[in-house]
Amino acid sequence: MPILDAVLLFLAGFLSGAVNAVAGGGTFITFGAMTLAGLPPIVANATSSVTQFPGYITSTLAYWHDIKHFWRGALLLSLISALGALSGALILLGLDNPLFRALVPWLLLAATALFAAGPWLKPAPKPGHEAAVGSLVGSLAQFATAVYGGFFGAGMGVMMLATLGLTQSGDYHRLNALKNMLAVVIAAVAILVFVSGGVIAWLQAIIMIPGGALGGYAGVWIARRVPQNAVRGFVIAVGLFLAFYYFDKG
């Protein structure tokens, strides 16, 4: 691997970790860096899932106090999420790179729009001691979100928080904790499928993961000095750049 590509990937991992800590949207950066470094889009998408996975785990652990109160009830949604992620990941592996490349700009535009609308999609607080799970509408919405997460993933967190806010009870922090827990399930299942399909670029992932860890730590410093709207604007600009890059390549 050229040294410049390695530096690009490490910096992308760092930026991804930092923006995830401040505003979310790090998937745009990891996916974009790997495609610009020459990886096929399916490989870049699958490898990005690996680089984001440690952050999903640490976010879930940060909410462990809340999760302890409803984890038994969330098992049904976890199972539904696993089935949805399995479906989405298998659909991705069933495509060839040219077909997926044709879909990527549209997926990026949709994910960027979803991310931009994120502040308005945050659920309002709802009464209820615990987050209720298991309703038919909620289960179907979570399955659809998990299919998307297994297939592409960018903007999944915003989408899931919005659907949980519409279909579950509980305050924002409980819903966010549930979202983080389900994101771990979705990512884990998708990664297992991608590993079995041989579409993970492990060298690139190994370079990016330490950068993401350092970026997540630095995100605390950034959050105190850079307005969140500025970080969100940067992520939206990256998403739009990548979308038009793929439109031009197509």
Rank of each mutant, 00 (worst) to 15 (best):
L203G: 08
V43M: 03
Q52W: 08
T35N: 01
L214E: 10
V238F: 03
L114M: 09
M160Y: 14
I209C: 10
I209R: 02
L83G: 15
I67F: 11
V193H: 01
G212T: 03
D248E: 07
L178I: 00
T163H: 05
T167M: 05
A131H: 06
L178H: 01
A141T: 13
F14S: 14
T27E: 07
A188N: 14
F28A: 06
A223W: 00
F244E: 07
A44M: 04
L8A: 11
P123D: 03
G155R: 10
W64E: 03
V238E: 07
I91K: 05
I222K: 10
A21D: 04
D96E: 02
D171Y: 09
I236E: 02
L15Q: 12
F151A: 08
G239K: 08
F70D: 10
F234M: 14
A124V: 01
P123F: 05
A146E: 05
V158F: 02
P54D: 06
G149H: 08
A144R: 05
P210Y: 09
G13V: 04
L93G: 12
A85E: 06
A124E: 06
Y63W: 10
A177Y: 04
L61H: 05
R225A: 11
G94H: 14
F14I: 09
L9S: 06
S49E: 00
L61R: 09
L107P: 00
T51G: 02
Q204W: 03
M208L: 12
A141I: 14
Q52P: 03
P41C: 04
H129W: 12
A124Y: 02
G219H: 07
G17C: 07
L140E: 01
P125F: 00
V199C: 09
N20S: 10
A116Y: 03
G233Q: 14
I222C: 09
T58P: 02
L166P: 00
H173F: 10
A62D: 03
V193F: 01
W106K: 06
T51L: 07
G149F: 00
A62L: 10
D66A: 13
I67G: 06
G55V: 08
F151C: 02
V238D: 04
V50E: 07
L242Q: 04
A183V: 12
A82M: 15
L121A: 05
G197F: 05
I91N: 05
Y217N: 04
P105T: 03
A205I: 09
G32D: 06
Y172G: 10
A37L: 01
L83F: 15
T30Q: 02
F244S: 12
G198E: 07
A102M: 15
R225K: 13
L164T: 10
G198I: 14
S59F: 00
A82C: 15
A243S: 05
A74S: 14
